[in-house]
Amino acid sequence: MKPAAFDYVQSHSLEEAMVALRKYGGDAKLLAGGQSLVPLLNFRLLRPAALIDINRIPGLDRVEMIAGDALRVGALARHHTLETSPVVARHFPVLHAAMAHVAHLAIRNRGTIGGSLSHADPAAELPMLALLLDAIITAESTGGTRHLAARDFLIGALTTALAEDEIVTAVEFPALPAGAGWDFAEFALRSGDFAIAAVAAVLTLRDGVVGEARIALMGVDETAIRASAAEGLLQGQRYRPELIRAAARSACAAINPITDLRASADYRRHLVEILAERVLAGAWNRAEGQAA
């Protein structure tokens, strides 16, 4: 379990990194936290010609509120920074709640936001939250800058819309609607383990009627997904237990889970329905609490 030989390139600015990426023409990997990349190298499942270390690029790790109460997170921000940020806890409590489920503390200390998005593991929390919160991902290359919606950025398992010479530099989370209720639930075999299934929701109520409903699911398809049909079911409706159950069933119908060593597809479907019911009820409670 030793990696094959590779060039090591230390970059001190974004420009240097982008130039190096272009130079290796798709045969280089960016080294940020290394939490997913290094195991893949050690198993020799990846054998890039070069690793371009971006850890020393200044200014890429900021977590800050920007205009319109949006949150901007630099690609080099560590999971732990997001998990413990008071700003995140206050403005994006659902993101704060999800971050505690990201692997173990040692991994959260090193793993980066940009790395998690670029790696696009179907059982990772951050891509799911980006999808839930309609995040915008900034990708830069020597050719220019692109802003991609999370739903366009996440294409498949370990696959994104990122071009070979592009670097994720930041992700922006637009402000949550005022008075939004939220909830997040994850089922894993052990604390810190990969999720077998996770569900997150954001709900807004106007006079007891659902204004906006967002539901994201993870671990049960090629990528994290939004349960659009279930969101539609809730739109404009008042609370009824049957409504929640119907939405949960609808979310369950949208997924395409696999059977692996941890869980069967049937069990994953069962879990998504249970978790969706709980999360929708939780989000509704919070939204009502906000309205009161």
Partner: peptide, 8 residues
């Protein structure tokens, strides 16, 4: 006894 086995 995994959750999967309990489910079954």
């Amino acid at each position: 006894v995994t959750p999967e086995r309990l489910f079954q």
